[in-house]
Design a binder for these strands. Sequence first.
DNA 1: CGCGAGCTTGACGTTGTTCAACTAGAGTGG
DNA 2: CCACTCTAGTTGAACAACGTCAAGCTCGCG
Lengths: 228, 228
Amino acid sequence: MDKFIADCLECHFRENLCQGLPAIDFQNLFESTTQINYKKGELILKQGLKTKHLVYLSKGIVKFYHDDNGKGLIITIDKAPTLLGLANILNEDINVFSIYAIEDCVACLIDLTKFKFLILSNRQFMLNIMSLSTAMFRKSIFNFISLAHKQVNGRIADILIHLSENIYQSHTFILSLSRQELAEFAGCSKENVIHTLRNFDDDGIIKASGKNLEILDFDRLQKISKTG
Amino acid sequence: MDKFIADCLECHFRENLCQGLPAIDFQNLFESTTQINYKKGELILKQGLKTKHLVYLSKGIVKFYHDDNGKGLIITIDKAPTLLGLANILNEDINVFSIYAIEDCVACLIDLTKFKFLILSNRQFMLNIMSLSTAMFRKSIFNFISLAHKQVNGRIADILIHLSENIYQSHTFILSLSRQELAEFAGCSKENVIHTLRNFDDDGIIKASGKNLEILDFDRLQKISKTG
DNA sequence: CGCGAGCTTGACGTTGTTCAACTAGAGTGG
DNA sequence: CCACTCTAGTTGAACAACGTCAAGCTCGCG
């Protein structure tokens, strides 16, 4: 977790979410901000702790992870650039889930008090943040639905589609997730993940060997997602 | 769907969510609002339609319902007083799910344009709304987790606990939901709901006959929720 | 009374979990 | 370089959970 001086002026966060925010406010927000490097596997936000800051992820891939008496569940996978921790604020500020780096990450911590002050003082900024927050909510609803009434086939298809379209943005990629993590994402056992990937492979839908994954027949994957 | 002039001045919405809102703004917001009665089973918000208003529910119980190619899923059950439709606004304003009355309801429609104008013009009001919105998000995460790695036993226990604690606020109540709807809430078949309720009954945990339900052993129900 | 919707039951097959044994690869130390 | 260990991945078989189906039941209502 090395620390650097954040180079805020060229930051994606500023250009997008902070659109309309006066330079002085932006600088004030990030005045004491330190940029932090996380290695793959490291904890970024811990479930159950009271949060003192938001995390602006400028580089890398993370998992939202909920631990429930030892049984893990991956709520979603997200990648930079994004703002982490929104769901935790404005109520009791207790983190509902943990966030882990599943690839090396670069992030900035944003002081929560300053952040709250700022959303109250700037309308456009608050609208941006609210919009982001409800978008996340929507996404989680769709995950929720996938889990609720698809079987493992369909859920794994969903996951592969999500990873391919939103995370790696390619039909060929190197998985950052272990089989166990895939299982925690799909809500099934790791053996079941393996069996399912094997079946997909036998059917010529994907080519999977270890961490290397290639989607050969995207259409069929989408068909399985719909019927599974 | 009879219409009445809303009696806004004594309304719970005003006393709570609109705290800090000047009387003039409140009156303006509800100026053209009509109070509406919904019969049990009636549709309040329709999934897929562009929404023109929020719904303030002042009386009754509703289900959030997502239809996915004929397969239904109840996302949550909520009761008055509450504000419906928040998750839909600020993005594309397309309803992600439908909302149905599962008991007779009374509601006020709130014009979306006026509402948006108001949250932008009043900080405290916006904070109240954001807080409500993230609270909903949190709740949905917990449902999500329940579905993802509990089996039917545990999910049904969760549902009974939720209904008892949050909706009916009693250990004895008359279910507003059919067996089929319970199944859509638990993400399983209606037969499975029936079997499970029967088992709970045989074990002396509940007494279920038709719509009448009594929780005899709340502790055991919580134990099942944790281990199932 | 007869009809129909919702409810109930049990049998059966499918899906998914658990378990136990095995393999592959990466690291470690002599 | 080999032996050892540790972890992740893989496989298949036994078993439990769950969905599907088909039949019968109950109760309210015309």
